[in-house]
């Protein structure tokens, strides 16, 4: 088993930090105070692990903490807008600084070579970890955005007392339909509405699945004692639906939201009149 050649670094922690931060600033990826705190913590933990290790530093217990820390740093840097390249640069510059100190500490070329090998082995694996952490961070953001999009894209609007409207934009798949239906039914209860308008102007195609979802939503609305109007049926959608053979005869359908609203007013026995100017 090879000796741990990195233990000597611990005594030169401050010097290493100075060189490292200079390299980071030269590389243009310095992030001020947060960066400095993070870097100090990382260097201190890494050197502690290096000093405590008996054989290879990666095998020591302490090293796990270093890995956890770098994963945390990488994802936090990712959120602050650092690229994976900059994250890798962060560790590469650390390696450069440590290597510089090693060459001052170890005079024997063979030993120095081995020491650098140990340093490389320890840090290369960490670089991979930072890539993985970065990817995970991005995936979290994407899945959160997916959730947010599906929520904002199904807003229920009260257009008049007793009338709610729900514009649907995009593809109505099964999971979206579920959200749409729940939102709509809840709003009907909350607002005490008796008419719901489902506007599909923003739906690119109505196939048998979407049609079935629409029919189900209408039935559910009716079960709650409210009426449901489907508006925004574009001419090409109307013709396609007919060719497909979908029967929408039991459903009130309108070409535009405006005409759906007019129908709603009629049902509520309301009328909009132009004011006479006297």
């Amino acid at each position: 088993m090879q000796n741990n050649l990195l233990s000597g670094l611990k005594e030169h922690e401050n010097k290493l930090l100075t060189i490292w931060s200079q390299l980071l600033i030269d590389g243009g990826s310095d992030d001020g105070a947060v960066e400095e705190e993070e870097s100090k913590e990382f260097a201190s933990l890494f050197l502690k692990a290096a000093a405590a290790a008996e054989g290879k530093i990666q095998d020591s217990q302490e090293f796990e903490k270093v890995e956890d820390l770098i994963v945390g740093i990488a994802s936090s840097r990712g959120k602050r807008g650092f690229s994976p390249r900059e994250n890798a640069q962060y560790l590469i510059t650390f390696k450069e600084a440590a290597s510089k100190i090693l060459s001052e500490l170890i005079k024997d070329p063979e030993q120095l070579f081995d020491a650098n090998l140990q340093l490389n082995a320890a840090l290369d694996n960490m670089t991979i970890l930072t890539f993985e952490a970065f990817m995970r961070g991005r995936e979290d953001i994407i899945s959160r955005q997916v959730d947010e999009i599906s929520e904002i894209s199904t807003p229920v609007i009260t257009v008049w007392e007793g009338v709610v409207a729900l514009p649907i934009i995009g593809t109505l798949d099964s999971s979206r339909t579920q959200i749409v239906m729940e939102n709509l039914l809840q709003q009907i209860v909350d607002t005490g509405s008796s008419i719901a308008i489902l506007d599909i102007s923003g739906v690119p195609a109505v196939d048998s699945l979407v049609a079935q979802h629409l029919i189900k939503t209408v039935s559910a609305t009716r079960l709650m004692g409210a009426e449901c109007i489907i508006s925004g049926i574009r001419p090409e959608i109307a013709q396609t639906v007919v060719h497909l053979g979908i029967d929408l005869t039991g459903i009130i359908t309108k070409a535009s939201l405006a005409s759906a609203l007019k129908t709603a007013f009629d049902m509520l026995q309301l009328s909009v009149v132009k004011r006479k100017i006297v």
Binding site: P204, A205, V206, D207, S208, L209, P235, E236, I237, Q239, T240, H243, L244
Partner: peptide
């Protein structure tokens, strides 16, 4: 045309499902 596009993508939708 938009009409034929809509027919085509609706057919595609059915068959891919």
């Amino acid at each position: 045309s938009i009409l034929n596009q809509t027919k085509l993508i609706t057919a595609t939708s059915e068959l891919v499902r």
